[in-house]
């Protein structure tokens, strides 16, 4: 078991024939992901990486039965691509592209929600079910199969966390990079109950950062609904106010969205909160030995 994706998930790639799309589709195929085709307007009918290319997501879904789309289109076209996927009946869109305008994501997410499509990202490493299915740009080899679910706003902290968990002798069930933009698709609050319900997942690592209040919402949710141990790290304890720290959404505005308030809320909800990402692995080990 796992959440959202597994070895049977059929995936298409939007922005399939571009440089990034091609490189990462190849990596995903090598990992074992069932990529069944891709979409690039005006290249329909061609073959790429031995797979069919379609002009529209609609065509791709009809011909391949894909339920998930991995999106690599340039930032200005992300909103359009997400809405196209939702319109074509895709169940989950994984948006890797960084730098999509916020206004576009407002519209796209509202439409996706209306159509019942889940979205991961944008500006994220994607999702991986260890040793089964990788939909994204993460290095697959560091994710050993196991019982820890991972949710992270940051790409490299996802790798850092997964690597430590595996070095402690554990492994990953599914890891989801949710992205650090001001408006994102699935967040902690939607993913936590999926991990809670997944019999394979024994503990959950959540990695957050400054800005917004998703971690605060997660804390309230964990308190009421999550029985599995949760280990959390919030990046940006030393970040100055009013400065954007790399991610578009990582900014303390006024006095809202600080690491301190998020860490407090999570602690109050019974979560093991570590002050350095270097402690994630050890904390997971301790949480599971209780």
């Amino acid at each position: 078991m796992s959440i959202l994706v597994n070895k049977d998930t059929k995936v298409i790639v939007q922005g399939f024939t571009g440089k990034e799309g091609t490189f990462h589709a190849e990596q995903c195929l090598a990992y074992g992901t069932k990529i069944v085709g891709g979409v690039t307007p005006n290249k329909g009918g061609q073959e790429h990486l031995g797979l069919p290319v379609f002009n529209t997501v609609n065509d791709a879904v009809k011909n391949t039965g894909a339920t998930v789309s991995m999106i690599f289109v340039p930032p200005a076209f992300v909103g359009d691509a997400v809405m196209e996927a939702a319109d074509a009946g895709i169940e989950l869109a994984v948006v890797i592209t960084e730098g999509a305008p916020v206004r576009d994501m407002q519209m796209a997410k509202a439409y996706a929600t209306k159509k019942g499509m889940k979205t991961i990202g944008p500006n994220c490493p994607g999702i991986i079910t260890a040793e089964e299915c990788k939909i994204g740009i993460m290095p697959g080899n560091i994710f050993k199969k196991g019982n820890i679910g991972l949710i992270s706003k940051s790409g490299t902290l996802t790798y850092e966390g997964a690597n430590q968990v595996c070095k402690e002798g554990f492994g990953i069930s599914t890891a989801v990079g949710i992205g650090g933009d001001p408006i994102i698709g699935l967040s902690y609050k939607q993913l936590l109950p999926m991990f809670e319900a997944d019999p394979e997942t024994k503990a959950i690592v959540m990695i957050g950062e400054i800005g917004g209040d998703l971690e605060i919402q997660a804390a309230a949710f964990i308190k009421e609904n999550i029985t599995k141990p949760v280990v959390a790290f919030i990046a940006g304890q030393t970040a100055p106010k009013g400065k954007r720290m790399g991610h578009a959404g990582a900014i303390v505005s006024g006095s809202a969205g600080t690491a301190a308030e998020k860490m407090e809320a999570l602690k109050a909800a019974g979560v093991t909160v570590v002050v350095s990402p270097a402690e994630i692995g050890k904390a997971v080990k301790e949480a599971l030995s209780k």
Partner: peptide
């Protein structure tokens, strides 16, 4: 992506989250 701070240890990291995590760890 660079933001100057007032400490003594220069940091060069890949990824915004790990970059913040590195600052936090130095502080810790």
């Amino acid at each position: 992506s660079y933001v100057s701070l007032d400490g003594e240890i220069g940091c060069m990291v890949n990824g915004a989250g790990l970059a913040m995590g590195t600052m936090d760890t130095i502080n810790y």
